[in-house]
């Protein structure tokens, strides 16, 4: 793993509190690796759109599962900030479309049928 040298010497941006009890250097590398893995599921571009909170939630879950501790959303955003300029990211088109066209609400058939059945 020595080829990953992205962790800076000074822990300027190291995540606060919760990481402190672990051996820092190594856990930091591990953390970054996992995070990059997670991005395969949750591309950073989605962190800009309407779905951002649920993408963040997905990242929290992923890291919690692979590193066995809780992560706050702030912690994750700080981490991401090292790799990406989050401000520059643009949301995907797909997401915008989703809400641009107003359509009327309609209750799915299954709800209405249910009612019929119980009468």
């Amino acid at each position: 793993m020595d080829n990953v040298e992205s962790a800076p010497d000074s822990p300027v941006q190291a995540p606060p509190s919760s990481a402190s009890s672990l051996p820092k250097e190594q856990s930091q590398v591990e953390l970054e690796l996992r995070l990059l893995q997670a991005l395969e599921f949750y591309p950073p571009s989605k962190l800009k759109g309407i779905h951002r909170h649920f993408v963040l939630y997905g990242l929290m879950e992923y890291l919690r599962k692979s590193l066995d501790r809780q992560f706050s959303s702030d912690e994750i955003l700080q981490l991401l900030d090292r790799f990406f300029n989050l401000e520059m990211l643009k949301p995907e088109d797909d997401e915008k479309d989703n809400f641009s066209q107003a359509e009327d609400f309609s209750l799915p058939e299954s709800f209405l049928n249910k009612e019929d059945n119980s009468k």
Partner: peptide
């Protein structure tokens, strides 16, 4: 985070769907 997400969805989705 989920609750923030729900609020965000709601504000967008209300007029849209």
């Amino acid at each position: 985070e989920i609750l923030k997400g729900l609020r965000c969805y709601f504000d967008k989705a209300l007029p849209a769907m």
